[in-house]
């Protein structure tokens, strides 16, 4: 009875708890980020190379001379945080007009477009496959093992082949993003489309509802929480696919290409590679948050809408 007593008046309390929890996790997250930066600079303070003002050239006055010289903490392996921040505001290459931030934003939008197309294709493919599988046990048994096996083939191994067949086109990237996206959706929706209340199914049967009506009015609504859980995973997966695919597909734009390029010129500008990686991380998080926002809007008031 303890639980019963404690549970009274719970919904209100749970809602405020959740709001407080969300505020808390945002705060802790900011705290962790600061801590990480502090550790980063702390390591450089102890074992980096002599500190100079941001953007300084050799010969400028030394601000601080660290007591140790750890190879992993030199400016090549671990650039100063402020130099990375500064890099965002500098031209992305010598003589260029656009700053690195603008350049990366453009690249990120390009990559996101590829990823979003792949994401949608993959989402529909996943939904279609799951729909077929929940209606036919035979096809499920015949094909689902291969859906699972398809993911044990490291997709990036296929990238050069797809690139050859499709040519150096965005289609290659989209296909790779689709390949990575459909799997979580298929698997989750095979479960989701079967997650209806069996009593509701009996009710639908008693109305002599058609398969299509049952699908529209029962299976699909019941599966929404599963769908969104899968889409959140797929959002990240599609970005991963696009980044890998740009390199393999020989696309001359996008974050994947930028990361490859900056990696080649790492010695002359490690900050730029860091900046590109940060841009990729932000893009992934942004896409994730967009899907999460849609999820919260669609599932409002439904059980399963909460929790990450």
């Amino acid at each position: 009875m303890a639980t019963a007593v404690a549970a009274r008046g719970r919904p209100v309390a749970a809602a405020t708890d959740r709001a407080r929890g969300r505020g808390w996790s945002a705060l802790t997250f900011a705290g962790i980020l600061l801590l990480l930066l502090a550790v980063w600079e702390g390591v450089k303070f102890l074992g980096g190379v002599p500190w100079r003002t941001p953007g300084a050239v050799p010969g400028d006055p030394v601000l601080w001379n660290p007591p140790f010289r750890w190879p992993f903490a030199n400016d090549l392996n671990l650039p100063h945080v402020w130099n990375i921040v500064l890099a965002f505001t500098q031209p992305f290459q010598r003589g260029a007009e656009a700053t690195l931030a603008e350049y990366l934003l453009g690249a990120a939008l390009y990559t996101w477009r590829e990823a979003a197309i792949g994401f949608m294709l993959g989402g529909f493919l996943g939904l279609a496959l799951a729909t077929v599988f929940v209606h036919s046990r035979l096809l499920e048994r015949a094909l689902v093992p291969y859906v699972i096996a398809s993911q044990t083939v490291p997709i990036i191994a296929l990238a050069p082949l797809i690139a050859f067949v499709m040519g150096q086109s965005v289609l290659t990237v989209v296909l790779i993003a689709t390949y990575l996206t459909f799997f979580p959706v298929t698997i989750a929706m095979i479960r989701g489309l079967r997650s209806f209340d069996p009593r509701a199914m009996e009710l639908m049967r008693s109305y002599a509802a058609s398969r299509w009506q049952i699908y529209r009015k029962l299976r699909l609504p019941a599966s929404l929480p599963y769908l969104f859980t899968a889409l959140r995973i797929s959002a990240t997966a599609s970005i991963v696919g696009a980044i890998i695919g740009e390199d393999a597909g020989g696309i001359q734009a996008g974050l994947g290409r930028v990361i490859t390029t900056f990696n080649q010129y790492y010695i002359t500008g490690p900050e730029k590679l860091w900046a590109a990686i940060i841009a990729a991380a932000l893009l992934g998080i942004a896409f994730f948050l967009v899907i999460r926002a849609i999820e919260i809007a669609v599932l409002r008031g439904q059980p399963g809408a909460e929790g990450g």
Binding site: R232, T236, V240, I243, W274, A281, G284, F287, F288
Partner: peptide, 12 residues
């Protein structure tokens, strides 16, 4: 971390 394309860290 789940939302970050971790493969971008490969060159690092």
């Amino acid at each position: 971390a789940n939302a970050v394309p971790i493969v971008a860290f490969a060159p690092l």
